[in-house]
Design a protein around this nucleic acid. Structure first.
Length: 637
RNA sequence: GCCGGCGUAGCUCAGCGGCAGAGCGAGGCACUCGUAAUGCCUAGGUCGUGGGUUCAAAUCCCACCGCCGGCUCCA
């Protein structure tokens, strides 16, 4: 007998009684599963020991996970029914943040998106039939035999990896059996609303040397409304895709004739980029950084010493031969900044030394990973290297992190995730170095009150780091800011400073970037604002529309001059179109303010202002309009 | 790089063995307009590139380049 406690009630039942039965006895209806501590168990799970269980209902987020998991099984079941039980080989079928997927191999057929409706239909049939699910445990040897017979080679692979102590469970319904830990709903009719969305490739076990399976993705919610909302969100996200906005707003150009992953900044995009750069430079100068410039290529000897040729060569552009010497286009700025540090003897009073550069680097990225501005082959890092003494590390990290967060906030980002990556297995550097560095990272994050995740062992071999990722329009996280220790380069380049004791010491070196890359940051920015940039960053801030270019053109010109004198980026709409068409055009260009000028305005020496965010704002004086704009620009609105 | 899909006018796309198409945009003309599309006319394409099959290829096949969705990798 085991004792089970649920919602304050205690019940003694026979060992091995299923959770569903226990809930039934206690009169708990409509539970989808239960939580025992952190573990989610389903209604089919036998209870083998005393425990306290919190029931999971439909409004608990965990219930979605259970239902989605069953949907992935139903999809596998449908595939088996359609393509044959011995032709479909199943990989893994987990849940995702909004649905589920299953990795499969179908012998003699490639699933394409055209097959999805057919698969969905079969799934709905299975759901309608409301097959009860079964769960049973099985011995390891027996499991291997069973799945070998079923030609489920990937499942056999999984079983062989399962810990010897772990119990192996099977779930299934009707003629379908799957190796699975659960949890599931107890019958196929109990799942929610779903839709299969797309098919993509995925390596078995995420290993590029292993075969590639097809991953079929679906999304699922309890509520049809929620599902539809999600689908609408995807449509909406497509509209704010920075690649599309870049084209529509004439910001940048990426073309195969120029080269994959290489960005051309069009005039309007160049304004945006320049604003970012100017602001970045000002902020760095304020904080004691020294701005430098370094070359785009460097002698192979340099990259030899830095270790890049040893560790980073696959990511570098091929070398070029100049007068019997090899040169490489830089994939990083670090060695040059080190050279600046080493250009003279450094003393402790100079430290921390902060060198910063908007350094354009080129990296070979595999063609399949290129993605608009987010992943390119040539990009400009807002790079800086801080060289300091061990006793300064903590203060430096704290200051740097605060700087990064403040800057991100100035651009309107609040939704980011902070990760600290710690020492990996094959690390260089002493334990003291790692401990000091990791400790300073954690302290800084905590001091700023940021929540963070530890990526245990996720640091580079040369040092731990903090990464800040920003969420994009469709929920993808992009790494932007990074603060990384480097125990490698100071050794390799024999960096030193003269301490108060008049002896030579090895400094700590910290790499850091706030935007990460200007390209990526602008990509994230565009998606974040769906192209409607804050006023201070808008390439065109005001569009003046004279109702009749002939009658009101000269007044428009006067206004333009006044605004320009205040540094406001303004254009006059001269094309001869109907007023509504011109307003529409300016709206589509996402220009923050439209100024309409007609007889009324000329007579009263005023403006009629329409804000992209505010709508029609009515009549305003020129001075009032200007001071409103300047105020907003100053506040980075 | 790998798996799958896709490259047709500046943009979005239709056509899928038999004359190269639409809408938007662009240029011109008329309209002179009060807060999200005025009407008419015109120009614009080596159908990604190269090869093949065929009487005939945008269309079928192969290779390459690029893009898209993912995987792996990463700022």
């Amino acid at each position: 007998m085991v004792k089970v406690k649920v919602e304050g009630k205690e019940l003694e039942v026979e060992k091995g009684t299923r959770l569903g039965e226990i809930f039934e006895n206690l009169g708990i209806e409509k539970a989808i599963g239960g939580k025992a501590g952190q573990r989610i168990i389903d209604l089919l799970t036998p209870i083998e020991e005393d425990m306290e269980i919190v029931p999971i209902f439909k409004d608990d987020p965990e219930s979605l996970e259970i239902m989605r998991h069953t949907l992935s099984h139903i999809m596998a079941h449908a595939l088996k029914e359609i393509y044959g039980y011995d032709k479909v080989h199943l990989g893994i079928g987990p849940t995702t943040e909004e649905g589920f997927y299953y990795d499969v191999e179908v012998e003699g057929h490639t699933i394409s998106s055209e097959d999805l409706p057919k698969i969905e239909e079969k799934m709905r049939e299975i759901i309608k039939n409301n097959y009860p699910l079964f769960r049973k445990t099985i011995e390891r040897e027996e499991a291997i035999k069973l799945f070998s017979q079923m030609k489920e080679k990937y499942k056999v692979d999984i079983i062989e990896r399962i810990d010897l102590e772990e119990t192996i469970s099977l779930y299934g319904q009707d003629g379908f059996v799957d190796l699975c830990k659960g949890p599931h709903v107890p019958s196929t009719g109990m799942v929610g609303e779903f839709k299969l969305t797309h098919v993509a490739g995925a390596y078995w076990m995420g290993d590029s040397s292993k075969p590639m399976l097809q991953r079929i993705y679906g999304i699922a919610f309890w509520d049809k409304k929620e599902l539809e909302e999600r689908l609408r969100f995807y449509e909406e996200a497509k509209k704010r895709d920075h690649r599309r906005l870049g084209k529509e707003l004439e910001l940048f150009l990426i073309e195969d004739e120029i080269g994959a992953g290489l960005v051309i900044w069009l005039p309007k995009g160049a304004i945006l980029r320049r604003l970012l750069e100017d602001y970045w430079k000002e902020e760095h100068i304020k904080r004691g950084y020294q701005l430098v410039y370094t070359p785009h290529v460097g002698n192979a000897k340099l990259w030899q010493i830095s270790g890049h040729l040893e560790y980073y060569k696959p990511n570098m552009f091929s070398p070029m031969q100049i007068e019997e010497e090899e040169y490489f286009v830089k994939p990083m700025n670090c060695p040059f900044h080190v050279a600046i540090y080493k250009s003279k003897v450094r003393i402790y009073k100079e430290l921390p030394l902060k060198l910063a550069e908007l350094g354009t680097v080129y990296r070979y990225e595999m063609s399949g990973v290129l993605h608009g501005l987010m992943r390119v082959r040539g990009f400009t890092q807002d790079d800086a290297h801080i060289i300091c003494m061990p006793e300064q590390v903590e203060e430096v990290i704290e200051e740097t992190l605060a700087f990064a967060i403040n800057m991100l906030k100035d651009f309107g980002f609040e939704d980011f995730k902070v990760y600290i990556s710690t020492r990996p297995a094959d690390a260089i550097g002493s334990t003291e170095q790692w401990e000091l560095a990791e400790g300073s990272l954690k302290k800084a994050v905590e001091k700023l009150g940021l929540s963070y995740e530890i990526d245990e062992g996720g640091g580079a071999f040369y040092g731990p780091k903090i990464d800040i990722k920003i969420r994009d329009a469709i929920g993808r996280l992009w790494q932007c800011s990074t603060i990384q220790f480097d125990f490698n380069l100071p050794e390799r380049f024999n960096m030193e400073y003269v301490g108060p004791d008049n002896r030579r010491h090895r400094p700590y070196m910290i790499h850091r970037a706030i935007f990460g890359s200007i390209e990526r940051f602008i990509g994230v920015l565009l998606e974040h604002y769906a192209g409607l940039l804050p006023l201070w960053l808008s390439p065109v801030q005001v569009k003046i529309i004279p109702i009749s270019p002939e009658k009101h053109g000269s007044y428009a010109k006067q206004i333009e001059t006044k605004l320009k004198q205040e540094g406001i980026r303004v254009e006059i709409y001269l094309r001869d179109e109907r007023l509504n068409a011109r307003i529409r055009d300016a709206e589509l260009q996402k220009i923050p303010y439209i100024v309409v000028l007609g007889d009324k305005e000329v007579e009263s020496n005023s403006l009629s202002v329409r804000g992209k965010r505010e709508g029609n704002m009515g009549s305003m004086s020129v001075e009032g309009f200007i001071s409103m704009l300047l105020e907003k620009i100053k506040n980075k609105e």
